[in-house]
Amino acid sequence: MHSFGYRANALLTFALTILALMCALASFSDNFNFPSPSAEIQIVKFNWFQKQPHGNDEVSLTLNITADLQSLFTWNTKQIFIFVAAEYETPQNSLNQVSLWDAIIPEKEHAKLWIQTANKYRFVDQGSNLRGKEFNLTLHWHVMPKTGKMFADKLVMSGFRLPEEHR
């Protein structure tokens, strides 16, 4: 009954149970963090705006992104993935989300941002609906934990408008 195998088995089971419990508790403790992130996005300029050969509108723009995401970090946070998406509605599509820029924040110390950048991913519409189109810029964040549940949320900034003409 009290053989080596039996003891080794009991020890392993106990260790794994405790480890699983600690992971669950670490993940659960994230629920007690009530973050208050802030962000602001401005469009510095539209670099160019044209119709691709096969008919889709494409625009290039430069963004100014200011954000303070330090409050999102807890002791169970491995990194935060953030991205800015243009969101708009067209006659065919009830929702278009186009990611323009993203970044990984590995540490709390780097969670205060001031970045000026052109769009990293192409801002291409499905069709030719972008002229004079009103759209939102949304800052999304995805909190990736050391262990357990992942969290995501966003801040919507509305009232942006694309130029009336291609150029």
Partner: peptide, 22 residues
């Protein structure tokens, strides 16, 4: 992978999705 673009159709509700690895 992570979804970076979504186009959701007005009439059918079908989605076109583009993904990318971080």
């Amino acid at each position: 992978h992570r979804v970076i673009k979504v186009h959701e159709r007005q009439d059918t509700g079908e989605v076109d999705v583009l993904t990318k690895g971080d």
